[in-house]
């Protein structure tokens, strides 16, 4: 039987997908971006973030890093809750210090799990919409829309103090999106959510990003970041260690960490013998179950061409081809996990 190469090919294509078609950072004007210019923040003598220069375009950008790496500091800096010790920040051309202007365009769902005492979910959202300056009728409509977006309409008139952690998280999210901002900053927004709501929330983020919003999300759950992000910013000890599209970041690491591909086939040993002869292959190793072969290469394009040639000879039947270390988890392990 012919191996289902179509799927493998599509994986390969994705792995090698050109990045030119996607919106790139350089193609956007600075006033449509969030720009950090050589930003440092120190808490006394303790480093928050150091010499961060970033340009974040619309879409979903995830901040990834271990605890204390500076993710929340970056978010607090771009929302004006903190002031940089050095450098400057512009959000859509606006200074975070100009709270009246910037929060017409920006919503921040922080990690602070606190609410006004005795307030219901609806009261909480409506109250801060009134502080924004919205009139009564408009406030009601916006609050209702926000509650619908996070599927909290049924619980809207219950006191927040009786809510579970996940429900409180969704109410904070609703509050941050209620005034329809263009930039949404979300600090660990999936924390405490059950799998169903998590999936709904990710879908909401993708929808918002598709609508042209900036979403800056911090998360510890790498496969979810991988699934929803257009770009990542990897942070460690207050420094940006890598940034860009996940695939681009992975590609940049080829020299130190060659791409590893798992090929499932009927004769892995024979395939290994053939692949050893190719100059682009650095290493070929049989899988423990002897049903597959791991190949390391620094030239994936050439490798896939060579593999096609071998498969075309008809002696080896390939079931699947899958890169095993081109996801965020691998990138994270290579850049941060090892430290």
């Amino acid at each position: 039987m012919t191996p289902p190469i179509t799927q493998s090919t599509s994986t390969t294509a994705s792995f090698l997908a050109p990045t030119a078609e996607r919106p790139t950072i350089a193609s956007s004007s600075p006033d449509k971006m969030i720009v950090f210019e050589d930003v440092s923040k120190f808490y006394g003598e303790v480093l928050g973030v150091n010499r961060v220069s970033l340009q974040i375009a619309p879409g979903i950008t995830s901040l990834v890093g271990p605890n204390g790496s500076g993710k929340t500091t970056l978010m607090n800096l771009m929302t004006g809750l903190l002031r940089p010790t050095r450098g400057s920040i512009r959000v859509l051309g606006l200074s975070p210090n100009d709270s009246e202007a910037i929060f017409q365009e920006l919503g921040y769902c922080s990690q602070f799990d606190s609410f006004p005492r005795g307030a219901t979910a609806r009261e909480f959202i409506e109250f801060y919409l009134r502080v924004h300056g919205h009139r009564k009728q408009e406030t009601r409509e916006l609050a209702q829309q926000a509650l619908e977006r996070v599927s909290m309409v049924e619980a809207a008139d219950r006191k927040i103090s009786a809510f579970s952690k996940g429900m409180r998280q969704r109410i904070r999210l609703a509050q941050s999106i209620a005034h329809n901002p263009s930039v949404l900053v979300l600090d660990e927004p999936l924390n405490g959510l059950d799998p169903m709501v998590r999936a709904e929330t990710i879908a909401l983020f993708k929808q918002l990003a598709a609508d042209g919003l900036h979403l800056i999300i911090s998360s510890h759950i790498l496969h979810e970041v991988d699934m929803m992000s257009d770009r990542v910013v990897l942070l460690n000890n207050g420094y940006v260690v890598a940034e860009g599209e996940i695939q681009g970041v992975r590609d940049d690491m080829d020299i130190e960490h060659p791409v590893q591909v798992l090929i499932r086939c009927n004769r892995p040993a024979a395939l290994a013998a053939q692949m050893f002869g190719k100059t682009e292959v650095i290493e070929a190793r049989l899988h423990d179950d002897r049903q597959g072969l791991f190949v390391k290469t620094r030239n994936p394009d050439q490798f896939y061409l060579s593999l096609n040639e071998v498969v075309a000879q008809g002696e080896i039947s390939v079931e699947s081809i899958a890169p095993v270390d081109d996801d965020l988890s691998a990138v994270y392990d290579y850049l941060i996990g090892a430290q």
């Binding site: 809750l81 929060f103 502080v131």
Partner: peptide
Amino acid sequence: DRSLHYYFLSSVRR
């Protein structure tokens, strides 16, 4: 009470 940030994150002059 850790609730001051809600005001600071609103479109209101301090």
